[in-house]
Design a binder for these strands. Structure first.
Lengths: 220, 220
DNA sequence: TGGTCATATGACTTCATGGTCATATTATAT
DNA sequence: ATATAATATGACCATGAAGTCATATGACCA
């Protein structure tokens, strides 16, 4: 957790530090991301950083937490309207993918979380997020089963894991690939994002759902 | 590429170096893996390492290449018998998962390949592998479509990408999770692998196929 | 035996990192 | 104006990394 001093900082400064740090952690994996680099680019002294955060890991986990929260709140908005399983999942997938493309930095920060320092306290954080998401999907599936939308003869836990691997970075990667662009190039050239219209995202998600729907759906 | 000297080395020594290096690169992400550590554990001098390899990256790419080749040849064995799309894919998935669990180090080395040094030559290597695999799946799908096994109204490229995200680490992770074990713990305690019987792997793969089959299959 | 070539060595250099700390600056309150 | 507390600073430190190189060792052939 940041020290109190950090929260006393003028908004502008605080934001600048977080922005620079986020950019660094999005660009490099944890062990290669450089504090010296961050403070230089943020225009503050090395020592100041240690007035705000305990250490590198403290800064990183804070950033990671912010990123996760933002994505969560973005995606959760899709859950307002109660509809059937497939529509809900389709919306979640679309929202997740949109978010990853609109905030590529945040997505990258989360993806880079896998670079654990030795054995991982950070890995734990990442697993926690994965765990929560999978559990949520599992719940969705069970509900869908009760309602008769989902066929009853599949292992919900396993199916939830499959769903998770889809909602992650996968689809975003595919979309970028259709543009012939890597994540790094995408991060460096923000204007590319204009080529990825919501319609295009929607299309891909619908295609995926076409496949999944008949896989999950209860036999009529 | 290793220097000629490396290939002149006695088999035993060469193997020892590769083993230690592989273990290091499986344990730590590229930027944290330490040459000094490797040479110490392999019982050779730092300088010797530079008689064998140009630099750290040279050693790493060589290891990565070996890992990829081994996995390839392991998985490709499943392709001997010509059968239908679903059986083939099921076998591939099972083989891939089995391999990941039998050689967790190799799998980890590949997974750690994502930790690119800055912007990535290594990433390129990783993408190449991904690309090849996806193209292979795409080919499989198209063939299945022609034979009428796969319905014709899905985007083969997209479907291939989905398949890829499944064959990767995903299933292995799921299996470990059912044992309440992380990859790191699994690497540290090889005896755990005995709990993962081929039957258990087969079961999970079959479950996944149950879902996918009706998703991909041509309407009868 | 002497000479030549491949291999082995580890002290050393260079460099960047995370982290510290005594000191300087600024803001606040009296 | 003065005292006190909060914040800012960057030279500095310890550490460990990748990579170098002059020298030593050993193998093989004449």
């Amino acid at each position: 957790m940041p020290k109190p001093t950090f929260f006393n900082l003028p908004e502008e400064k605080r934001k600048r530090i977080l922005d620079v740090a986020m950019d660094e952690f999005a660009t490099y994996p944890y062990s290669k991301a450089s504090l010296s680099n961050i403070v230089a680019r943020a225009g503050i002294a090395k020592g100041s950083m240690y007035q705000y955060f305990d250490d590198k890991k403290d800064l990183y986990t804070y950033i990671l937490d912010l990123a996760a929260q933002e994505k969560m709140s973005y995606v959760k908005r899709e859950l307002d309207q109660k509809t059937d399983f497939f529509t809900t999942f389709e919306r979640l997938m679309a929202a997740g993918t949109r978010f990853n493309l609109e905030h590529p930095q945040l997505g990258q920060v989360v993806a880079n979380a896998l670079d654990v320092p030795g054995e991982g306290l950070l890995h734990e954080l990442y697993s926690k997020g994965r765990e929560m998401t999978i559990e949520f999907f599992e719940h969705m599936l069970k509900e869908g089963m009760e309602k008769g939308e989902i066929r009853g003869n599949i292992d919900p836990r396993l199916a939830a894991t499959l769903m998770y691997s889809l909602v992650g970075q996968g689809l975003a990667d595919y979309l970028l690939e259709t543009l012939g662009v890597t994540m790094h190039e995408y991060l460096a050239n923000p204007e590319i994002s204009q080529k990825l219209t919501p319609e295009r995202i929607e299309y891909v998600v619908t295609e995926v759902m076409k496949i999944l729907r008949s896989g999950f759906e209860a036999q009529k």
